[in-house]
C-alpha cells in the first residue's frame, strides 16, 4: 500500500531519527524506539516518583501506582494462584509496557509502537516460548499430555490431538494479531474520520468531528482493554504451563 505523507497509514511509518549500525544490523533509533524509551521512562517515573513519599495513607498519585500493582497482582493470583508470584515482575512489566505504549499512542501526532505486528509478535512469541519452556521444566515430557483433552475417548484422540496442537501453536499469532489489529484499525479509523472533518468543511464536519470525539473515548478503552487482554492471556498460558489442565 503506497502511503501518502498524509494518508491514514502515514502515522504507522517508521522514521529513522538517529541512524545506527551494529555490525551489519540496522539498529537505528527510530520514532518507534523513541516511544518505547518514553514508555520506559514514564512507567519508571510514574511508579518510582509516585511511591517516593511512602505514605501510609496514599495520595492520588501513590494510589494510582498502588492500584496498578494490585490490579496485576490480583489478576495473576486469580488466574495462576500463589505459584504465579515468581512471574509477577514479568507480567507487570508486560502490562505497563503495553498500556503506556497504547496510551501514548492516543496523543495526537505521536507514534503507537504496539500497532506494529513485529513488536506485538515478538512479545507474544517470547511469552509463548517462555511458557512452553516453563511447561517442560515443570513437567518434563509429561507436558505433552496437555495436548490430550481430558475426558475424551481414545477413538477421538487422532482428531483431537492435532486440533489441540494447532490451537496451541496459534497462540502467539492470535495474541499478537489481536493487539496489532485493534490498535492499527482504531488509529486508522480515527485518522479517516479526522480527514472527513477537514474535507467536509465547518458545517458538514460537525458530524464526523463528534464521531472522532466518541471514537477517541472508545480507543482509550481499547488501549486499556488490549493491554489487559494481553496480560490476562499471558497469565492463562502460565497457568496452563504450571498446572496443565
Amino acid at each position: 500500500m503506497a502511503a501518502e505523507s498524509h494518508g491514514p497509514l502515514a502515522q504507522f511509518e517508521i522514521k529513522t531519527l538517529i541512524p545506527l549500525k551494529m555490525g551489519e544490523v540496522d539498529v537505528s533509533f527510530t520514532n518507534s524506539a523513541l516511544f518505547m524509551s518514553l514508555t520506559l521512562v514514564l512507567v519508571t517515573l510514574f511508579l518510582v516518583l509516585g511511591m517516593r513519599q511512602r505514605a501510609l495513607v496514599p495520595g492520588r498519585w501513590q494510589s494510582m501506582a498502588e492500584i496498578s500493582y494490585e490490579f496485576v497482582a490480583n489478576l495473576l493470583r486469580d488466574t495462576v494462584g500463589s505459584e504465579g508470584r515468581k512471574y509477577f515482575p514479568l507480567v507487570f512489566t508486560l502490562f505497563m509496557f503495553i498500556l503506556f505504549g497504547n496510551m501514548l499512542g492516543m496523543i495526537p501526532y505521536s507514534f503507537t509502537f504496539t500497532s506494529h505486528i513485529i513488536v506485538t509478535f515478538a512479545m507474544a512469541l517470547a511469552v509463548f516460548i517462555g511458557v512452553t519452556v516453563l511447561g517442560f521444566i515443570k513437567h518434563g515430557f509429561h507436558f505433552f499430555s496437555f495436548f490430550v483433552p481430558p475426558g475424551v475417548s481414545v477413538v477421538l484422540w487422532p482428531l483431537m490431538i492435532p486440533i489441540e496442537i494447532i490451537s496451541y501453536l496459534s497462540r502467539p499469532i492470535s495474541l499478537s494479531v489481536r493487539l496489532f489489529a485493534n490498535l492499527t484499525a482504531g488509529h486508522t479509523m480515527l485518522k479517516v474520520f479526522a480527514g472527513f472533518v477537514v474535507s467536509m468543511g465547518v458545517i458538514g464536519g460537525v458530524l464526523p468531528f463528534a464521531f472522532v470525539v466518541a471514537l477517541t473515548g472508545l480507543e482509550l478503552l481499547i488501549a486499556f482493554l488490549q493491554a489487559y487482554v494481553f496480560t490476562i492471556l499471558t497469565c492463562f498460558y502460565i497457568n496452563d504451563a504450571l498446572h496443565l489442565h
Binding site: 537505528s28 533509533f29 527510530t30 524506539a33
Partner: peptide
C-alpha cells in the same frame, strides 16, 4: 531489525526497573 532491537533494550530495562 531496529524495532526488535529497541524493543529488547527498552523492555529489558523496564523489566529490571520494575
Amino acid at each position: 531489525a531496529p524495532q526488535l532491537f529497541w524493543l529488547l533494550v527498552t523492555f529489558v530495562l523496564l523489566y529490571l526497573a520494575m
